[in-house]
């Protein structure tokens, strides 16, 4: 029954490494650069360079690779699915035929490349969340979005929403568990019946959860106002972000690698 205890949200793994100590903005931008170049690359060699660059980053981050690769699990199905679709559905030189199913050379190449693209994409973003604490990630996103303030992007509000969500996820999970147990004690049943009945059975959990969440939101708003909160205007930041030499060098290196991977080869 007790599934929800001690989860620490996000998957941040604290270590003392070059990657961890980078400015979050640099990490986010580097990650974006990798993603963009992934879609520009046309040749194998490009993938090879980018793949080794990401693997190299994983190694110097001191985060055990098993945690990084764990991020692949949820999308493994999608990777295999796209691979199969491409292998069988692409017209071209047939290398193997099984009844009406044909495996073509072009299909195999295309499928492998696309899977590899997804593969690197997930590894890079996993590493970003593993090596950056949720707080600095939020800070980084806020400062980066602030650039687009002139077109009306509510940077501070988005960051505040993220912070509050992160803060309340454990509280709400604990509450869900408690309400679930309370309703089971009153005779509710969450395990049997068909899918419609099961969905209906969730009502006794969802309604109290929403009612309580609204009350929490109300109280939190008052507490924030009492602490002089009035939006992002004129607000300073407890955690200062400063671009250091290492940040500049890393970013420059990332740009060089991604540009090389997408254009030169």
């Amino acid at each position: 029954m007790r599934i929800l205890r001690n989860i620490s949200f996000g998957q941040y793994i604290p270590r003392d490494s070059l990657i961890h100590n980078l400015d979050p903005r640099i990490k986010i931008l580097s990650c974006l650069a990798i993603i963009v170049s992934l879609f520009l690359i046309t040749k194998y060699s490009g993938y090879l360079i980018l793949g080794s660059f990401v693997l190299f980053s994983i190694i110097i981050s001191k985060v055990h690779p098993k945690f990084v690769f764990r991020g692949l699990r949820p999308i493994l199905f999608i990777i295999i699915f796209t691979l199969i679709i491409h292998i069988f559905m692409t017209e071209g030189k047939v290398i193997y035929q099984l009844g009406f199913l044909k495996i073509t050379q072009e299909g195999l190449v295309k499928g492998l490349l696309i899977s590899f693209r997804l593969f690197i994409l997930i590894l890079a973003t996993s590493l970003l969340t593993l090596a950056t604490s949720p707080i600095s990630l939020t800070d980084g996103i806020e400062r980066l979005l602030a650039i687009f303030k002139f077109i009306g992007v509510p940077a501070h509000e988005i960051a505040m929403m993220m912070t509050i969500a992160l803060r309340f996820i454990p509280t709400l999970l604990e509450e869900t568990e408690k309400i679930m147990k309370a309703q089971i004690s009153r005779g509710a049943d969450f395990e049997s019946g068909n899918i419609f009945n099961r969905a209906k059975n969730l009502i006794p959990i969802l309604i109290p959860l929403f009612v309580n969440a609204f009350r929490r939101a109300d109280e939190l708003a008052i507490a924030m106002e009492a602490k002089c909160y009035r939006g992002g205007e004129g607000r300073t930041h407890y955690r200062e972000l400063k671009i250091k030499k290492a940040d500049i060098l890393t970013f420059a290196f990332t740009i060089i690698v991604t540009v090389m991977a997408s254009i030169m080869f």
């Binding site: 309370a182 009153r186 049943d189």
Partner: peptide, 24 residues
């Protein structure tokens, strides 16, 4: 009866709330 049991109420009327267990 859990702590703060008022946080588990969810029905439209008190009748339905109290009838939840017997109905089940």
């Amino acid at each position: 009866v859990f702590q703060y049991p008022e946080n588990q109420l969810f029905e439209e009327t008190i009748y339905q709330e109290v009838a939840f267990g017997p109905k089940k």
